[in-house]
Amino acid sequence: MAELKRFLVRRLLTFIPTLIGVTFIVFVIAAVIPTDPARMWAGGEKANPKVIEQLEKEYHLKGSILERYYFIMYKLFTNQMVSPVTHHYIWDDLAKRFPVTIQLTLIAFIYIVLIGIPLGIIAALKRDTWVDTAVRIFALIGVSTPVFWLAYLLIFLFFTQLGWITLAGTPKPDYSITGVPLIDSILHLDFPMLAQILQRYSLPGFILGFMGIGITARIVRNSFLDAISADFTEFAHARGLKKMRIYKHILRNALVPVITVLGLQFGGLLGGAPITERVFGLPGLGSYMLQAINQFDYLALIGAVFFVSLIYLTANFIVDILYAFIDPRVRY
């Protein structure tokens, strides 16, 4: 276990260069685009030269690339960076939006796990029957359906026709443990609040997870079939193990590739969040990023990218921990 702890600490330390790298790349891309940010911020063509000059000074726009990068990161982390566009403290804005995106991706992820994995197992057990084909077609539909189209279709059904869901506001309890309302309301056993949150988030979560459900089902199916037809399964039959025990061997082996895929799916969810948040009017990091891009507010963009990367890294960190428990071949 001491080994595991060392591994985890080392793994956590790799967050630092990754986060620096990601934010630096976004910054460089923003910095090399041939525009004049100060002029854009000050109002475009007809901007007052005095204001432009002041902005340039305030945001160190004339410095070297490294200087500018350091300035942004330092100000962001000490919460001294005010967006030149919204005039809010960027860190405050991000902290407010962070839980929205977390909840959205968590719910999407729950759909993927709760629907994708059982579908995959059923398809594997009923391989080459119509059930298997149906899952295959479902997966194909999942990857080829435009998200916004499906979103509007389901909004029409569940909101306009059935009235099961809400499309405005972001439910938030007045207590806070983790800062994520979904988790807090569960910890508090506050079911009315949980119901509100689910009403608001379950459809966007489903839309966001839709593509992943099908992909996951296919991967689960294939890794199950691999495990079922593996030599060690044949040997398990040959040594007369009980059925349930053989299933245990199959399940555990089949999970190894599935966990990797689930970790990667998380990245896909974060990438899909901007569109889903936009369609459903959810004030999360994704819609914040879109807004920042439109307004050339790259300071806000870098901050948002930092948070999104943090979520992704954490998801992969959890995957690594699971790996270490499931697969003895993983060396740390």
Binding site: D231, A238, D327
Partner: peptide, 14 residues
């Protein structure tokens, strides 16, 4: 009981 050809594949790696 059986002994198969490939011992690496016969044993469950986990």
């Amino acid at each position: 009981s059986y002994i198969f050809q490939d011992p690496s594949a016969s044993l469950d790696p986990l």
